[in-house]
Design a protein around this nucleic acid. Structure first.
Lengths: 311, 311
DNA sequence: ATCAACCCATTACATTTTGTTATCAATATG
DNA sequence: CATATTGATAACAAAATGTAATGGGTTGAT
């Protein structure tokens, strides 16, 4: 009698042949179902029978009839083949970046502002992707992305952390936000000198963009009268709206607050805010991060084009 | 970038290599774990990467680091490989006949009598085998086994149904069962002539064995005085025990009822009951039926040896 | 800096698996 | 009886899978 032979290796093709024979009822039909010739099926079946160590079909009247043992194995074989098919399916989903988890860190006002629609679009295009979107201090955002606690993030440039890969993503002008009731509201733009003696609403104390503003005033020899200092664009705009002073803000972030009670006028000299897309330099971007990155590039370059056209 | 390629086939070896690399952390270690050389692993990995269409590891400092995608696939790959291992395991169990369902049909008195211990032993030796054990009329038992509604059965010989494979299994003498209070109870055996005028308890009207008994009386020109006719040995013995008459029974089946109130004495002339093991002639025996058949052969030949020694 | 010890990729080649076509024997069909 | 169908097998082509040998890169100890 045949011997139990754990040596002869199992192959997916044998399993596929076996399944096809059971399902179609004959080796010939199985062959055409799998798109191969009948002798190939015969041999794959023989190989599988050798692996399991006993006959799976009895040959009678030159037909194949499954034995009880074959039927007992069939269920298990089907499960395994379905597993293999799931691998391919999952791979395809991963390839299409339409499956997975994406952890993004970005400044709060960035999330509330320009990123909101971009992320919403991305989620609509990739329905089975989940996103976690959090705000952290720039310092911890940097670290999280660098050692991959987060997949990617947005951060104000310049950025030169050695563990980060930085892609410039978005530029925005600096604007003055003020109430229509403010004396300067009639201007078409506002220069530093105009702000002499005016109440100022500033944010981001200690950040690079704030230092640049301080510098501009210093160079223009205009003393700053900082009435209110805060950390979010929303709050700065809220007070500007109440005519408490002139807020100097990032255009992109402030746009959503502009309405009949809040004007945004260009600030001169030109001062550019720039945001970058960051990922860990220690590993290549995951396919999903890559897809999100490309989506952002498209979305922001469209946004940018519309934005610059208004100038 | 790489393209999604559904063509390149998936192989278990690639999956094994992939799993081993993830588990061991390096291609070299995976190679020794799988007992192949490192280049083989490198190529199997490359093949799997080609199948899924994207990189599964990033190569840095001449090491392999799994990407997020690889980790996402890993779970699914493991499940599939475990499925494949379950196939081999199940095959081994089937090979050892220690897994499965066995449907047996046999006469009621046969189940209660000689078969009981044999089946119990078989179940003890194959703990994961399940047995269904039923009684049917000889006619329907034949049919059930022939077209495989039952896997195997026991039937009184001779048997020549064309759809059955018959293996003689067990022989038994014919005995007279009678009360110790019966006048014939002092004999060491009983001849047909002794039974002239005696009340008889007979069974199996119309069956082959009954025809033989009728024939013996006819040839000996002894008229039969059938007091009671029934269909089970148990009932025949019950009445013999109450001294209602002499029962003519199959020794093997009646033994269990013999006690201080029931004697079993050989009947002369010698009349042999024979039982056979039947399976369908349309299909080979399943491995489990085969195992059970061989078990029965051993068990009954042992039983037979002990039995004949008492004569 | 140099050297040995690794790691992985690649090449060149052997072996095994998997495919093909061309048969054949057995069986069903008209 | 001729014919078609089924599965097994042989002979051979192609592909997958294995090997040894080698090279480039990193690491760590000297």
């Amino acid at each position: 009698m045949s011997e139990l032979n754990t040596q002869s290796p199992l192959s997916l093709k044998s399993l596929e042949a076996f399944r096809a024979i059971i399902q179609t009822g004959s080796a010939t039909a199985a062959a055409s179902a799998l798109g191969v010739t009948q002798p190939a099926i015969s041999r794959l079946l023989a190989a599988f029978e050798e692996h399991v160590g006993f006959a799976l079909f009895y040959r009678e009247k030159s037909r194949l009839f499954p034995t009880d043992e074959a039927l007992a194995l069939f269920k298990e074989v089907e499960l395994t083949l379905q597993g293999a098919e799931r691998i391919s399916l999952l791979a395809r989903n991963i390839f299409n970046s339409d499956l997975g988890w994406l952890k993004i860190v970005a400044p709060n006002s960035f999330i509330a502002g320009p990123l909101a629609d971009v992320v919403a679009d991305f989620l609509r295009q990739h329905p089975r992707v989940n996103i976690s979107l959090d705000t952290h201090s720039p310092a911890s955002a940097r670290e999280m992305v660098a050692h991959r606690s987060a997949d990617c993030g947005f951060i104000q440039l310049p950025e030169n952390h050695p563990g980060l890969r930085v892609e410039p993503m978005l530029k925005s002008h600096t604007m003055c936000a003020l109430s229509p009731a403010h004396p300067l509201a009639t201007r078409s733009y506002i220069e530093v000198q105009d702000l002499q003696g005016e109440n100022l609403i500033l944010l981001g104390k200690g950040r690079y963009s704030r230092l640049q503003i301080d510098d501009i005033f210093r160079q223009a020899k205009v003393p700053m009268k900082v009435k209110l200092e805060t950390h979010t664009v929303a709050i700065a705009c809220t007070f500007a709206k109440r005519n408490l002073g002139v807020a100097i803000v990032n255009d992109m972030l402030a746009r959503q607050y502009a309405d009949s009670n809040l004007l945004l006028l260009p600030f001169k000299p030109t001062l550019i805010y720039e945001y970058g897309f960051i990922t860990s330099a220690h590993a290549p971007m995951s396919r999903l991060s890559q897809a999100f990155f490309e989506h952002c590039q498209r979305a922001f370059s469209d946004m940018q084009a519309g934005y610059l056209a208004t100038f």
